[in-house]
Design a protein around this nucleic acid. Structure first.
Lengths: 179, 179
DNA sequence: GCGACATAATCAGCATACCCCCTATTCGGC
DNA sequence: GCCGAATAGGGGGTATGCTGATTATGTCGC
């Protein structure tokens, strides 16, 4: 930022004179980096960026990888079940599956027994990619947690898990039985 | 290539027999709820949902509130500076400001000294809303952290802050001087 | 002063993530 | 067997967050 600009400094000074000082004081008392929600949002961003870097060769996002993982454990699951396992909205599951299917990593078919449901599973290509990406995902995890030592990582994961578990009911994308 | 493709239409049991068992084993060893990135994504979702519930009267999102907060502390900041303070992408700042401006909470004007820059500040209405929402934001924080006791909250916030701080360089939306 | 570079914003495009409302299908009570 | 409730999926709309390309403006070396 150009601090040297006298015009900008003047504009800021005038603005601060107009600004409600009580509001300013209130906000100074609780800056962004002391708000848990803000830090969680930022950390989520950071993880997404690290994951994207490590996995750029595959062009797979964290959510897509979570879907691939779940499909490898529960082949033939329907979209609603997938939404619950991965903890994403059901309308979003359809979008993600469509992108993965378009790239040949996943195939979908109507369930003969319940013609409302669409069942998804990995293609051989999808299995291959999922397995090949494992190392890249581990590198991303390692980089992400690198600032913490082993004991702190344990602590962090434990606290994270408790917060997720206890608040799981919030929103439309509650997690299923695993958590 | 898949073997026994005639059995595709059959039930999931057949599919699991076809499924690569080694891949399954690999994925079982690192389930979603043991992956830090997955938990952080889910926790971010949860916070967004809680915040939306507590603040539904105002129809303000967490990011919008972060912008309002920053504008109350730095009136007349430009979009690039705002992006750095709030830790969001510069293209996104413009969108958020446009929505806030359309609702009369923020006004924008070209900087006379540097005609590339657009300066933003709260309107009186914006100041009023920002102040009025403080209680709702605190309720959201309280609900979010409720599963942890005081000491654990301290721990969690400290670990969170260290992870954010140490990995701050990742991505296009690095935070500014505050963190 | 001019040309090379840097900076601020914008635009187009994609991916996540949510909402509400709609249709198709299945299931349960009678 | 029939009708209403519940369920699975989809369509349309909005907000965040990223990338890359482009435009307008400033700044600096010369």
């Amino acid at each position: 930022m150009a601090q040297g600009s006298s015009a900008e400094a003047a504009a800021a000074t005038v603005a601060e004179a107009v600004q409600d000082p009580e509001l300013r004081q209130l906000m100074e008392r609780l800056p962004l980096w002391r708000r848990p929600g803000f830090l969680v949002r930022r950390l989520h961003q950071i993880h997404t960026a690290i994951f994207a870097e490590e996995c750029q060769h595959y062009e797979i996002t964290p959510v897509q990888y979570a879907v691939l993982t779940t499909l490898s454990l529960r082949p033939g699951i329907d979209q609603a079940g997938l939404a619950q396992e991965v903890g994403i909205d059901r309308t979003n599951v359809a979008d993600v599956l469509a992108r993965l299917a378009q790239r040949g990593l996943v195939k979908r078919q109507r369930n003969a027994a319940d013609r409302r449901a669409v069942l998804a599973r990995l293609t051989p290509e999808g299995e291959k990619t999922t397995r090949a990406m494992l190392a890249a995902m581990r590198r991303a995890q390692e980089r992400f947690l690198e600032p913490l030592d082993a004991a702190e990582r344990e602590q962090f994961m434990a606290l994270l898990l408790r917060l997720v578990d206890a608040n799981n009911g919030s929103g439309r994308a509650a997690l299923g039985p695993a958590a």
